[in-house]
């Protein structure tokens, strides 16, 4: 019988828990800490890049990945599982969206697609859940016209409301999601996952303020990472991805009218070093 049927490894325990998912979360909680902070004009994703040996060529491995030009992703947990999810996320963003609508999926749609992939692994036969939690950061153009600059003599209360985009499909702007092995996902202003998630989140709660700018967010991200990091902090051991203004220089070509560069990019080790020295 056992070779004729393969039951899902994730079978409810009598108490109503799916222990395989709990175990997957344990794997995540042993993983290297990653964090994300949403600012008014962008998002930062940051993680520590641990190498078990000084001989490892750290430049050739990467934990922060581009999914679509405006969406990036980072993880805590099992690296191999993550790379499968990156592949699937990139693929589904095309098969499930770009090839149909000729535009890239909004962040929430991509998050849902990735979450579906992860959920299916909790209900299918012969598979185990993914041992990763993800932070997915993206920028959406939104369908409402960009808000015009408000007049100076407007009441203070209204000014606050208009300050920056808060994300979401109607308004557009940045959004940051966490996806867990169960397939559940949460929108965050700032969060952390992995080994020191709890302490990092406590730190972020203290540091986070509304109306944060991207540069501030990068600064806070590094400060948070500094609290939790085990080894040395430098351009090689810290990996940062940002969602910011469109970078037309990254298109690889110029002179095409209407072409907009990607918003997501990884910071080079040199850029990270620069931020670290200003810490």
């Amino acid at each position: 019988m056992a070779d004729r049927y393969s039951f899902s490894l994730t079978t409810f325990s009598p108490s109503g828990k799916l222990v395989q998912i709990e175990y997957a979360l344990n794997a995540v909680n042993q993983g290297v800490t990653s964090l994300g902070i949403k600012a008014t004009n962008g998002i930062v994703l940051a993680t520590e890049k641990k190498s078990s040996s000084p001989l490892i060529d750290s430049q050739s491995s990467s934990k922060v990945s581009l999914i679509t030009p405006n969406i990036g992703m980072v993880y805590s947990g099992m690296g191999p599982d993550y790379r499968i999810l990156v592949d699937k996320a990139r693929k589904v963003s095309h098969t499930g969206y770009k090839r149909i609508y000729n535009e890239y999926p909004p962040t929430r749609i991509l998050v849902q697609d990735v979450a579906r992939v992860m959920q299916e692994a909790t209900q299918s036969g012969g598979v185990r859940p993914y041992g990763v939690s993800l932070l997915i950061a993206g920028w959406d153009d939104g369908i409402e016209p960009e808000a015009e600059a408000k007049d100076v003599d407007e009441p203070e209360a209204e000014k606050k409301l208009a300050s920056g985009k808060t994300g979401g499909i109607l308004k557009g702007g940045p959004s940051l999601y966490q996806v867990d092995p169960s397939g559940s996902y949460f929108p965050w202003k700032a969060t952390a996952i992995g080994k020191s998630a709890t302490s990092a989140k406590t730190f972020l709660e203290k540091r986070y303020t509304e109306g944060l700018e991207l540069e501030d967010a990068i600064h806070i991200a590094l400060l948070t990472l500094k609290e939790t990091i085990e080894g040395e902090m430098n351009g090689e051991t810290v990996e940062i991805g940002i969602v910011g203004p469109p970078e037309d220089r990254l298109l690889g070509y110029e002179g095409v009218e209407g072409a907009v560069g990607p918003r997501f990019r990884k910071l080079s080790p040199q850029e990270v070093e620069d931020y670290l020295t200003n810490l």
Binding site: I100, Y101, N102, E103, P106, I109, Q112, I143, I169, L170
Partner: peptide, 13 residues
């Protein structure tokens, strides 16, 4: 799914 109306351009594609 998207909680918004489809735009003419998206509809075209």
């Amino acid at each position: 799914r998207e909680e918004r109306q489809i735009s003419p351009q998206t509809m075209a594609n």
